[in-house]
């Protein structure tokens, strides 16, 4: 059930987010002490920029998980949206509004397809998204031959650089496209889940779909909205990634699904539905980002980075499960 956060500190102290926050703060403090570069503006902006893609997708997936479903087709959706949008932009010319409109449209349409398969054919969402991942990706590579696009429109390659300010002698920072998109995605998802009637309905549906339906919720409409939202996020994330990579690589994104799943579930979202917060997802994302960044800054070979990430995931989920067991010792949670 959704609960007003910060309503009482006591409740927050016992929450998943609290422990995650403590871990992150300890990690930040020790990394900051070990390496002067960690706690700099430069590093913060770099982190936000490079994790924008995973972050935006994580927010879409969060909404799907809260609604009681799962989607892993989003990397394929993003690949399709990216390829089609930038091909169109290259062929016919476009501007920022245009490319985002096309990417969002494609993402939303593919998301709608998922929702139709899930609700109208009543196939479980995990099956549908495994299937559509293969369908979208297979068809994309079949029709494009897997060719990369290296030449992007100049205005797109240049990107956005707002609120530029100088730092020291020759470094300057600004809000770029990645950070802007990530910020808006967080704001919008938070508004959707916490400040809208629809958000309440999504939580309720994820908690108990049958009950929600009997209360008169439009379950198909809600599902449609949720999977379209995931698709739209995939569309936005795909452009953010293409701008950062300065190319479109149709084979690169698929296979990164589980990174996104890891960020969201580390943030406390439950695969059973009805549970999860935007703040938690932010913390889950931050933990993964800081960990990978910290390992590099500490001079550990990047080959070992996945090992430590896996270790932290395993320890953190075990610790969470253990602390919840102590509170409800006799509940038969699997």
């Amino acid at each position: 059930m959704p609960k007003p956060r910060f309503a009482s500190f006591g409740r927050f102290r016992r929450s998943h987010e609290f422990w995650l926050l403590i871990v992150i703060l300890v990690l930040c403090a020790s990394l900051g002490a070990a390496n002067g570069q960690f706690l700099t503006m430069q590093n913060l902006f770099d982190l936000l920029t490079s994790y924008a893609f995973v972050g935006i997708l994580a927010l879409g997936l969060l909404v799907v998980l809260i609604a009681g479903g799962i989607d892993i087709s989003f990397t394929a959706t993003a690949s399709v949206a990216q390829y089609v949008t930038l091909s169109v932009a290259n062929a016919y010319g476009a501007n920022w509004i245009c490319v985002f409109a096309i990417a969002i449209g494609i993402g939303g349409a593919l998301g709608a397809l998922n929702a139709i398969f899930i609700r109208k054919l009543r196939i479980p969402s995990i099956i549908v998204s495994v299937a559509t991942l293969n369908i979208f990706y297979g068809l994309l590579i079949f029709f494009t031959g897997g060719k990369y696009i290296y030449s992007l429109p100049d205005w797109f390659a240049t990107g956005i650089f707002w609120f530029e300010f100088e730092w020291g002698k020759d470094t300057s920072y600004g809000v770029n496209l990645q950070i802007l998109a990530l910020g808006f995605s967080f704001l919008f998802t938070w508004l959707l889940l916490n400040r809208s009637n629809i958000g309440r309905q999504i939580y309720a549906m994820g908690g108990n779909t049958d009950a929600a339906q009997r209360l008169g919720f439009h379950v198909f409409g809600l599902n449609m909205l949720v999977y379209c939202y995931m698709g739209v996020m995939a569309g936005i994330a795909s452009l953010v990634q293409a701008q950062l990579a300065q190319s479109v690589a149709p084979t690169v994104l698929v296979g990164k699904e589980l990174d996104v799943v890891a960020a969201v579930v580390l943030g406390g979202a439950s695969l059973m539905g009805g549970v999860g917060t935007v703040f938690g997802t932010f913390l889950g994302l931050a933990l993964l980002a800081i960990l990978q960044n910290g390992i590099i800054l500490l001079g550990v070979s990047s080959y070992w980075s996945p090992f430590f990430v896996g270790l932290v995931i395993l320890i953190s989920v075990s610790a969470t499960a253990w602390s919840q067991r102590e509170r409800r010792p006799r509940s038969a949670q699997p």
């Binding site: 579930v265 990430v309 989920v317």
Partner: peptide, 13 residues
Amino acid sequence: GVSPILATLGTMT
């Protein structure tokens, strides 16, 4: 009592 998807995601990584 960790959910299987999470636990195996951890061991996978």
